[in-house]
Design a protein around this nucleic acid. Structure first.
Length: 698
RNA sequence: GGCGGGUUAGCUCAGUUGGUUAGAGCAGAGGAAUCAUAAUCCUUUUGUCCGGGGUUCAAAUCCCUGACCCGCUACCA
């Protein structure tokens, strides 16, 4: 291999070993696999890394519970990922486990280097420690002075820890990302990171004392501490390829792509990059955050009677169809929605009708007219030349789109070629030639050769997405093919004229059988109209106010928020129940005026943490134009009464979000609080507000 | 509330630096053909390019504004 040999190193996140592999893991890993296979097809030297993250408290706990060592526990659970990837035709080059001795030694080496370079310092740290969660929380994270996750008490603990000087690299990183527009992809994620970096950045605590967490990598310069799991985990990308070179001699690091879900973008874009910078190591070329698969459970359950687990689709329709759907349907970076209907739709129209049927008709024609044997052809007609041109365009277009990460468009380009083959057959009508017997044989061979050659190139282009099915398809065209993960098509196989004539074509190959029913639900052409992707009736619009649960509450105590200028912390009594609620009334109403008052609150609002105090609900107040804000008053009602709007259904939703609540506009009309002209009522009377008509209430 | 993105055919989306009759796939309608997985091929839709202003010879594209949706973020409760 020469110096100009192009190389490609791609990574997935390492998955937390306790997790069960789900569609999120699968999508990332399939995407990495497809990209790798495409780059390999384009003639590049590739390296594909995935693995498992095996340190941390939860692993230790799970192991303790099972009565095995953490390592034994990990051995069992890491295998679930390896098995899952094997089942999904994923051909990674290395599966790293953070408990691998090489990785542990590497991370220790990193810590020593950072320490030697003065990038890590020790600091007495005083914070709120939750025994339940075995971790610290910042003042800001605490909710009512309690652990925000478990709700259990926290204690103030003073402890020494080691910190990485992350803040020192803030300006550098900001500039770096600004200067490299394609470093973080897609660009809207890049903007989010830039926004994040324009706020003050803290140093990063990179150690945990063993007294609290023993299952981790021991720090070389402080043996009673282990590495913070994120540092441990991130360096897998580096440790896995330490000292490794491609066949051309180029080092594998830096990675071309780190693939990841949008939820872990900050750790990669900020922690990882600054640590590499502190070590003078090259940065990865791109960090790509992809979207989520969404599920419309309501619709799924309506049409098929149950919620479909997407992972079961690979058993039901085959691994390659599953891979095809995920790659074809999702625009990299965006969210996409998963439904069985859409998958079947894709499979039928793209794979069965175009790809599978296209192959099928050629095989049959060759079998009946030419004993399944094709021979080289010299003459090239006008249509054949056009087909050849289409093949060239498909190859160029698809490879270019892969480079731009537009995989669904690369697939579309390839399907154009397959459709061109079907069109070519229509024009040439080889079935007529087949009926001419010996006289038509030469022409028949010519037509089928060109069609088969175009299909061969199309199948080679689809191979990265559907390795086993396209392997079968290529074999049916007589291409020597020795397995799914072995002999992939090469760059030369994308050239016209590489058809091998030594083997007969296959017979009776049905690559993608059409599916007419899904779980008893009609999936074929529907005479009643409507499409499959839009098969379900639109759900009846729900009155947004019906989701809201309002209750009368009495203010039993008012205090200033310890941490915010405009907030009060109110203790409310709702019937028998006591709640803490924050209210942004400090600038509008005196404490005395609130104390003992009855108010109306949004009872089912999702709890929120406001500057360290959990607020479980919200007081309704009228907001006059002059900026005056006054709580509304439930005349004569008793604490705990429900408040409803007349003639409005009542079906409160748990954990209503503020956004959902704001879909119900409340206004004042003749001194009464109304929802769309319907006055709000407690069982004992209307809700009043001292404000002009039209004043918004929230 | 702040910042950013979006709104194009029934559905999912393309539309480069403003330039002629605004596109693809799927779905629908009509037709041809019969080698093939009731598959294929051809033809086909009246799209207020979210609304309203403006700049320009010319705007889906640029500017302002309004509505709705989404992401991040916040002393939103």
């Amino acid at each position: 291999m020469s110096d100009t040999q192009k190389t490609f190193y791609i990574t997935t996140p390492i998955y937390y070993v306790n997790d069960a592999p789900h569609i999120g893991h699968s999508y990332t890993t399939i995407l990495a696999d497809v990209l790798t296979r495409f780059h390999k097809l384009a003639g590049e030297d590739t390296f594909f890394l995935t693995g498992t993250d095996e340190h941390g408290q939860k692993v230790q706990q799970a192991a303790d519970k099972a009565g095995v060592s953490p390592k034994e526990h990990c051995d069992v659970y890491a295998k679930r990922f390896q098995d899952a990837w094997r089942d999904l035709n994923i051909g990674f080059d290395k599966f790293i486990r953070t408990t691998d001795p090489e990785h542990i030694a590497y991370v220790q080496g990193i810590f020593q280097q950072l320490w030697d370079r003065g990038q890590i310092y020790e600091k007495e740290y005083e914070g709120w420690y939750s025994v339940g969660e075995e971790r610290f929380f910042t003042e800001k994270e605490l909710v009512n002075g309690m652990d925000p996750i478990s709700g259990r008490p926290v204690e103030k603990v003073r402890e020494k820890n080691y910190f990485f000087k992350m803040s020192a690299y803030q300006d550098w990183l900001l500039k770096y990302i600004e200067e490299k527009p394609d470093f973080i992809l897609p660009d809207f994620r890049r903007n989010e990171v830039l926004g994040f970096l324009r706020q003050p950045l803290n140093d990063l605590c990179v150690s945990r004392p063993k007294s609290r967490l023993a299952w981790g990598i021991t720090l070389p310069f402080a043996t009673d501490y282990v590495a913070y799991v994120w540092v441990d985990a991130l360096f897998n990308y580096r440790s896995a390829v330490d000292g490794k070179v491609f066949s051309g001699g180029a080092p594998v690091w830096p990675a071309d792509y780190h693939l990841l879900g949008k939820d872990i973008l900050t750790t990669h874009a900020v922690y990882w990059t600054t640590m590499l910078k502190a070590l003078d190591m090259p940065q990865p070329k791109h960090i790509l955050a992809h979207g989520w698969w969404m599920f419309d459970n309501a619709r799924m359950s309506k049409t098929t009677g149950n919620v479909v687990n997407p992972m079961s689709m690979k058993e039901k329709y085959g691994v390659d169809v599953f891979r095809y759907f995920l790659i074809r349907e999702m625009v990299v970076g965006q969210d996409a929605s998963f439904s069985e209907e859409a998958l079947v739709q894709r499979m039928n129209s793209d794979l069965a009708n175009d790809v599978g049927n296209g192959l099928s008709r050629i095989l049959k024609l060759a079998a009946t007219g030419l004993e399944s044997r094709l021979t080289p052809v010299a003459s090239v007609g006008e249509e054949a030349a056009a087909l050849r041109k289409a093949a060239g365009e498909a190859v160029a277009g698809a490879l270019e789109k892969v480079k731009a990460l537009k995989l669904s468009f690369a697939i579309e380009d390839t399907l154009q070629l397959i459709r061109a083959v079907n069109r070519y057959l229509e024009v040439k009508a080889p079935w007529k030639l087949a009926k001419e017997g010996e006289a038509g044989k030469g022409k028949l061979n010519t037509v089928l050769y060109h069609a088969a050659e175009a299909l061969r190139i199309g199948f080679s282009l689809l191979h990265p997405v559907m390795p086993s099915k396209m392997g079968e398809a290529l074999a049916a065209l007589g291409v020597e093919y020795s397995g799914v993960l072995g002999a992939e098509p090469s760059i030369t196989s994308l050239q016209w004229g590489k058809f091998g004539f030594s083997r007969p074509l296959g017979q009776g190959v049905n690559l993608f059988p059409r599916v007419e029913n899904i779980s008893g639900h009609a999936a074929g052409k529907s005479k009643a109209g409507g499409t499959l992707t839009d098969g379900a009736a639109p759900s009846a619009p729900v009155d947004p106010f019906s989701l809201v649960h309002l209750k009368v509450a009495r203010i039993e105590n008012v205090e200033d928020h310890p941490n915010a200028d405009s907030l009060y912390v109110l203790q409310l009594r709702i019937g028998e129940e006591a709640r803490t609620v924050c209210a942004g009334l400090k600038k509008h109403v005196g404490k005395e005026a609130l104390l003992g008052q009855d108010v109306v609150m949004v009872y089912n609002l999702k709890p929120a943490n406001l500057r360290g105090v959990e607020s479980r609900g919200m007081i309704l107040a009228a907001e006059s134009e002059g900026g005056k804000v006054l709580p509304v008053s439930p005349e004569g009602a008793a604490s705990g009464d429900d408040v409803k709007a007349t003639d409005t259904p009542f079906a409160p939703k748990a954990d209503l979000t503020l956004k959902e609540f704001e879909k119900s506009p409340l206004t004042v009309k003749s001194g009464l609080v109304c929802y769309r002209d319907r006055p709000l009522q407690s069982p004992r009377g209307p809700i009043r507000a001292q404000a002009a008509d039209g004043t918004a209430v929230r």
